[in-house]
Nucleic acid binder design. Structure first.
Lengths: 213, 213
DNA sequence: CGCGTAATTATGCAAGTGTATAATTTCTCC
DNA sequence: GGAGAAATTATACACTTGCATAATTACGCG
């Protein structure tokens, strides 16, 4: 009746790494980076803690991998729907919609963003990932606005395009933030509606009517 | 030559509590809530760790006190300039300006907000503080928008006023966030300018010209 | 089927954590 | 100026943390 050594199953490196990363994201969202302990992560992934060291040379490395995984997932989610289809106006609207709909708008996504912020500002590698992702978002938004304005016969100088992109990005970020922080404060579709109205008002484009292909 | 016991000076309870709270905010901004250790806080406040227990019954209580202190300071800062002066339009513009100028826009303020988010979502007392502060902001903004629209002879129904307030709040939040996250990405006054333009575009009010008293 | 290797578990360690409590110092009041 | 009380320091303790290393197991390959 002595304690038996735990049975286990061998998995591929990719599967194990991904499982550990997902467990890490769960714990980071709930308890912050420091609250995501090696033991807690191992337990969540149904594994003993030593295994983490086998796949990641340190907790720091696991955290960085988890952050990159999360950021990649967020960009994939945002640009999944209607990426390159239809008019510039339709694509702009799809961008707004995707950014303001679950699972992008999500308390857990917000919690992760907040939890990683400290590390992002200090760790150079995480900072690089963050700035790359942020620049990708904003450049893409600026390109969409530029194209939509030209399409409407109302081209604008570069300086103004930059400000429009910053402003639209800010509304979207702000709505994303509030939707994640107060999930029950908004009716379904309300954030999208407000987001469309706001981007339309800022740019002077009409995003509300259903567009042709 | 034996180690001498440390000399100290007695301070009032208020002064000591405030010093401890300020030290706590420093460490929380740098290292997150869990990274703000009791020993670290004591060192920053130039005090030994036992003293913290003398003024706060637990670290949790100190954290909550620090959070409330920070939130109160933020609202005071936002509403300090031109609180009740001038036309509704001027007051709305003062609100935008105050929200998008240092020291409200500040990397440290953003780091604090992010660091506290986890606890805010779990701890009921912190959640209450957060929701009260948020509601205060948005109600105030909605009242300003309502008054400014009436002043301009363009009253709007309640549902629309709510959406306008949400949208304007979102732009301001988003610009605040980006200004704190990327302090060097914006020229001085640029956030204010973009914020004014955006709120003006969303509400249809003219916030750009210098208003009369 | 059995051998070897890599995956996985088990155990241990030194440093750091919050908190409790005892020892000392400072300051007020008479 | 001295006694008493409150503020402050000092010390200790049980627990958690990340990391290192040894012991074992599962599985592919001959």
């Amino acid at each position: 009746m002595t304690d038996e050594r735990r049975k286990f199953k061998r998995e591929s490196a990719e599967a194990r790494k991904e499982a550990l990363i997902l467990a890490t994201l769960e714990l980071v969202a709930d308890n912050g980076v420091r609250g995501a302990t090696v033991r807690g992560i191992a337990q969540r992934a149904d594994v003993t803690q030593g295994l983490i060291r086998h796949y990641f040379s340190s907790k720091e490395e696991l955290i960085i991998a988890a952050y990159e995984h999360h950021m990649n997932q967020m960009t994939d989610l945002t640009f999944a729907p209607g990426a390159a289809a239809g008019s510039a106006r339709a694509r702009l609207r799809a961008f707004v919609d995707g950014s303001l709909t679950p699972p992008v708008v999500d308390p857990r996504a917000l919690a992760l963003w907040a939890s990683f912020l400290n590390k992002v500002q200090n760790d150079p590698q995480m900072k690089e990932t963050h700035e790359r992702t942020y620049a990708y978002f904003r450049d893409r938004l600026e390109a969409l606005i530029t194209a939509a304005l030209e399409e409407a016969g109302r081209p604008a100088p570069a300086a103004r395009l930059r400000q429009l992109a910053i402003a639209c990005n800010a509304v979207i970020d702000g709505l994303w933030l509030e939707g994640g922080a107060l999930p029950d404060a908004f009716a379904p579709g309300e954030l999208v509606e407000i987001g469309r109205h706001s981007v339309a008002a800022i740019t002077g484009l009409d995003l509300m009517q259903e567009a042709g292909t």
